[in-house]
Simulated assay, not measured.
Amino acid sequence: MAALVVPPAVAVILLPFRAGLPNASVALVLVVIVVAVAANGNRPAGALAAISAALWFDFFFTQPYERFAITKSVDIQTAILLLVVGLAVSQLAARARRLEVITITDAGYLAQIHDTAELAQSAKSPDTVVDHVTVQLTKLLHLRGCRFEYGTLIGHPPRLEQDGTVVWGRRHWDVDRLGLPDEEVELRTFGNGRFYGRFMLDPTPGTIPPLQARLVAVTLADQVGAALDTASM
């Protein structure tokens, strides 16, 4: 709703200053409004706000006024730039907001990472860390099972990537809508750039682990890689 209401409302507020306010300044104010909408909403809201801002800029601030038409080339350029910049910045603002939520929302996730880091430093064998993370991943992602394979890359199963997405062959799997694939998913483990093995995740059908949990899972696998790398020295 804000994406549709706020841009025209701000345009109406600026309308009395139309004669003395450069259109570039008006466009800049509207871009700021688009960013505010995106930062407090999501990508579609930001995109809708950008389109709305461009339309109402055309309607109120380009000649002929009160018509969706533009006659001056400079106004056409300004309107296009408003739309393009508004769309781009709104996507960045929405992404920044999403990443902020991922970073701060769950102290329990941070505790798991901290516990594993401490174990990796104190354990006499990296196998202890592997077993610990296997249990953590099972609970974290609500798996039916989880196992670790040392130094093997057999087959082409779906793969949990560093950014929390899942790639299956050449396509991305929509985890947020479909959950993890109903077959084993690999989570590769690297230490200092060297491949050491992979966790094979056996998902529970119907469960959808959130992105935050998937990113924590990747972090835990990286800690295992660090422990294995240290042990190999």
Rank of each mutant, 00 (worst) to 15 (best):
E161P: 02
L160V: 02
H132T: 12
P44G: 02
A69Q: 05
L87K: 00
P157L: 04
I76N: 06
H132K: 11
L180G: 03
K139L: 14
R170I: 08
V133D: 04
T134K: 07
E184P: 01
E118D: 15
D174H: 07
T78V: 14
K124Y: 12
Q91S: 11
L180T: 09
L110N: 07
L160Q: 01
T62R: 02
A47G: 06
A96P: 08
F60Y: 14
S125E: 12
V101A: 13
T71I: 09
R67L: 12
A123Q: 00
L83D: 05
L153E: 12
Y109K: 08
A111E: 11
D58S: 14
E149G: 10
T105Q: 06
E184K: 09
L110S: 05
A107Q: 15
R144E: 09
Q77Y: 15
G169L: 07
I154V: 14
G86Q: 07
L119P: 00
I104S: 09
W56N: 04
A53N: 02
V166I: 11
I70V: 10
D176K: 08
R98C: 11
H142Y: 08
V85S: 02
L153D: 07
V74C: 13
L143N: 06
W168F: 15
L87T: 03
R170E: 15
R171Y: 09
T128S: 13
G86L: 08
F57R: 00
T165C: 11
T128E: 10
V133H: 01
F57I: 04
Q162P: 09
L140P: 07
D106M: 07
L141H: 01
Y109M: 08
L140C: 08
